[in-house]
Design a binder for these strands. Sequence first.
DNA 1: CATGAATGAGAATTCATTCAT
DNA 2: AATGAATGAATTCTCATTCAT
Lengths: 199, 199, 199, 199
Amino acid sequence: MKARDTRKEEAICHASIDLINRKGLSETSMSQIARQANVSPATIYIYFKNKEDLLRQLYLRVQRDAMQNIFNGYESFLPIDESFKILLRKAYQYFLRKPEHFTFLEQYSNSPLLQIIDEREQEKYFAPLFQLFDRGKQNRLIKDLPNEMLLSFTFYPIMQLVKYHQSGKLRLEYAQFESTLKLAWNNIKLDRAVGSFTS
Amino acid sequence: MKARDTRKEEAICHASIDLINRKGLSETSMSQIARQANVSPATIYIYFKNKEDLLRQLYLRVQRDAMQNIFNGYESFLPIDESFKILLRKAYQYFLRKPEHFTFLEQYSNSPLLQIIDEREQEKYFAPLFQLFDRGKQNRLIKDLPNEMLLSFTFYPIMQLVKYHQSGKLRLEYAQFESTLKLAWNNIKLDRAVGSFTS
Amino acid sequence: MKARDTRKEEAICHASIDLINRKGLSETSMSQIARQANVSPATIYIYFKNKEDLLRQLYLRVQRDAMQNIFNGYESFLPIDESFKILLRKAYQYFLRKPEHFTFLEQYSNSPLLQIIDEREQEKYFAPLFQLFDRGKQNRLIKDLPNEMLLSFTFYPIMQLVKYHQSGKLRLEYAQFESTLKLAWNNIKLDRAVGSFTS
Amino acid sequence: MKARDTRKEEAICHASIDLINRKGLSETSMSQIARQANVSPATIYIYFKNKEDLLRQLYLRVQRDAMQNIFNGYESFLPIDESFKILLRKAYQYFLRKPEHFTFLEQYSNSPLLQIIDEREQEKYFAPLFQLFDRGKQNRLIKDLPNEMLLSFTFYPIMQLVKYHQSGKLRLEYAQFESTLKLAWNNIKLDRAVGSFTS
DNA sequence: CATGAATGAGAATTCATTCAT
DNA sequence: AATGAATGAATTCTCATTCAT
C-alpha cells in the first residue's frame, strides 16, 4: 500500500491558488495546475473529485485558515470596543500577511461560481463578528442597526483598504491604521442619545 | 468592425450582459451570446474585434451609462455636504434601478480579466467624487485623508448595501437610507478640532 | 450563408460504420471517425448532437435502408408462401450485398448500448413480416404460434447463414438457398391436421 | 500472475460478468470491476495479465461451464433423435438457469473483440453437437446438410428463444418447449426419400 | 500477496474565430 | 452586412496499467 502524499496535495492547492490569483477562476485549467504542481493531471483527481470540488475545497480551506488566524485567541470577555478593534486589526494584518489568500477570496466574492459553495459555510465566516455586534447592541454600546449595515461600515471598508494596499495605491502606517480603526468604531458605537434608523 | 444596425449591436450587448450576470464572464461563450441575441456568431465579429474587445466595450459602455446617470445634473456650486449626499444617493438609486449593471460591474471588480481595461479609464469613474473630496479638504469641511480612505468609508459601504439589497438580505426604507447617508457623511466631515491621521 | 455539405455528412456516416465494424462500437472514437472522414472532430458535432446521437442516427439510417430494400415492391396480394419467400430472399440478398450494414446491425443486436434506441423504432423493423405471419395464421396457412417463435425458426436462421457466409464458413449456391427457403417455410406452414403448441 | 486466493479470483470474475452484462464490454473499467469485487485495481493484475487476458479468461470459463453443464452425462449410445433433444433441452435449460452466462456470451458473439479469442477454442464449443450431426448423417437419420446449416435451424433458433425469454417477450411452458424441440428435429431429420441440397 | 497512489495517453466535447456564400 | 459551416486548439476527465510500500 502506498500512502497519500501530503506534499502533492499541498502542491496542487498552492499551484491552484497562485494560478487562480494570476489568471482567474475559469481561466485556470486543470492541466495548468498539474503542470505547475509537477503532477499528472490525473493525480489531481485522486485528491479532488473534479474541478468544482477542487474549487470548493480550496475556498473552504482558505476561509478556514483565515478564520483560525483572525479569531484564534480572541477572548469574548474583553470590552466590546477592544474586541471589535482586535478582530478588525487581526483581519487586516492577516490579509496583509497572506495577500494570496485575500486575492483568492475576493475572486469568489462576486463570481456566479460561488453558488457552488453552501451558503451556510459562508455565514460561519462572520459568525463571531455578528455575535460581537449582537452583544454590543444588547449592552447599548453599538447602534441598533442590522448586522449587515454594521459590517458594511466597518469590515468592508477595511477590506477595501487591504485592496488598496495590495495595488499599492494606499499603504497605511501603523498609526494611520489605528486611526482608521477608531473611525470604524465611531461609526457604529452608540452615543448617549441616538442610535437606530428611527433616530 | 464598424457598426451599422444599432438594433443588432444593442441586442448583442444586452444578451452579453444578461448571460455574463447569470453565468459569469468566462462561462459565457460567443455562441451563447449569438444565440440569445438572435444573431450568427460571425455577426458579433462585425461589431467587435474579438471577445476581449467585446468585454472591454461592454465595460466601458456600462461604466459610461453609470457615470452619466450619477453625475448628470450634478452642480458643483452646491454645498459640499449636499453634493456628497446627492452623488451617493444617485449612485445608490442608479444601481437599484439597474441591478444588471451593478452585477455586471461587480463581476469585473475582482477579476484578473479587468486588466484588459486601461486603468486610466477606470479612474475617470471616480473623478467627480475625488474632485468633491479635494474641494472639501481645501475648504476644511472634509477630513484630510487620502481619497481612497474617504471612498472606502463612504462609497464602498453603500455599494455593499446595494449588494445586500440585491441578495434580499437587507432592503432599506427611504428614511433608513437617508440615515445611512448621514452616517457616511459624519464619517468624513471635519469636526472643528480633529481630522487627519496625525490627530 | 454557407449550406451544409451533404458530402461531409455522408463521409462521417461512412467512416463511422466502417470503423465500428472493424473495431467495435465503443472502441471507435470521435477523433478516429473525424480522421477517417477527413473532417475536424468539431465538424461531427455540427451534424450530430453527440456520440450517442451519432450512433442512434446511424442505426436508424441503416435500418431504414434495410427496410426500404427488403420491403420495397413487396405486394401483399401475393400468396402467403410466395410473399414469405420473397421477403426472406430479399433480406438475405440485401445483407449479402451490403455486408457492412449487416455487421453494423449485428453489433447493436446484443449490446447494452442498444437501449439508447427507442424500442418502438425496432418493432417497425419486423412489422411487415409480423403482418404476414398474422395473415397466414388467420388463413390457416401458417401454424398458430407466437410471431417470435415463427421468427426464430425462419428469419433468424437465415441471418445466421448470412453470418456464416460473411465469415466464409458456408457459402450457399442459389439452389441451396432456395432449398433453405423451402425448409424455412415447411417449418411454419400449417399441415392439414396439426399446428399449435397444443397439438 | 499466478493465482492464490480463489475467493478473490472468483470475486473478480463474478463482478466482471455482472458489470459487463449490465454496461457492456468496453464500458466496464478495471476500476469498476475492482470496486465491485472489493479488491484493488492492482490485484486484478495479479490474477490476469491485462484487461484483454481477463476478458479472454472470462469467456473461456463461461464457455467451459456451459459445455460441462450441457454435455455432462450425455451418452452417445442413445438414439440420435433422443441425444439431439437431450442436448438442446439441456442447453435451453442451462441458459435459462444461468441467464448471466447467456447474456455474457451473447455480448461477445457479434463483437469484433471476440477476435481476441482463439478461433479453435470456439469450435470446441460445438464439437459434440457436430459429432452428433455427423453420426446422424452417416446413419441416414439426419439430412446431408452442412453442420452450419443444421445449427442454424436447430441450435440458434432455440438460443433466440432464450433471448425472448430473458426479455420477457415469450416464455414457453414445458410442453411448448417440447413441441419446439420436435419442430427443430423435424427440421433436420431425414425423410425416407429426400435430404440433401441436391434433392 | 495485496494495495492505494500515480500517471501518460486518450476520450468526448466546446470554444473563439474564420471561411465561403 | 450577415450568416451557418468549419475548424484546430484546448478543456475536463477517465482509463489501463505500473509503482512503491
